[in-house]
């Protein structure tokens, strides 16, 4: 292995580890009460929505169409069929709409 490559990989790994361990410095007592608790309870869905929204709303018509299918189907389908539907819808919409 080349030294400078290993150094660069180590820097990337350290940066990632720093973000993943950062939660450890948040005082535990803070996370359990009142508005802070409400904030944490709302967090998972909000983070996931922020990850998917730009892909669904700002990538193009194919993504918007496939995204609509997935969002509607999410109410009715279990996760695995939903994933299969998403892949097929995106592949299909992209093939047709470019």
């Amino acid at each position: 292995m080349q030294g400078d490559v290993v150094t660069a990989i180590a820097a990337m790994a350290a940066a990632t580890a720093a973000t993943r361990l950062a939660g450890l410095v948040v005082p535990r007592a803070l996370a359990g009460k009142g508005r802070i608790k409400a904030a944490f309870d709302a967090l998972p869905a909000a983070v996931l929505a922020a990850i998917v929204a730009p892909v669904l709303l700002a990538s193009g018509w194919a993504e918007m169409l496939a995204g609509l299918a997935v969002v509607v189907a999410a109410r009715y389908l279990p996760l695995i069929p939903l994933i299969i539907l998403g892949v097929l819808a995106a592949a299909g919409a992209r093939a047709v709409l470019g």
Partner: peptide
């Protein structure tokens, strides 16, 4: 459409 495996996963979650 494989990136939509992750999108669908996240929407389902």
């Amino acid at each position: 459409g494989l990136d939509f495996a992750f999108i669908a996963m996240f929407v389902g979650l």
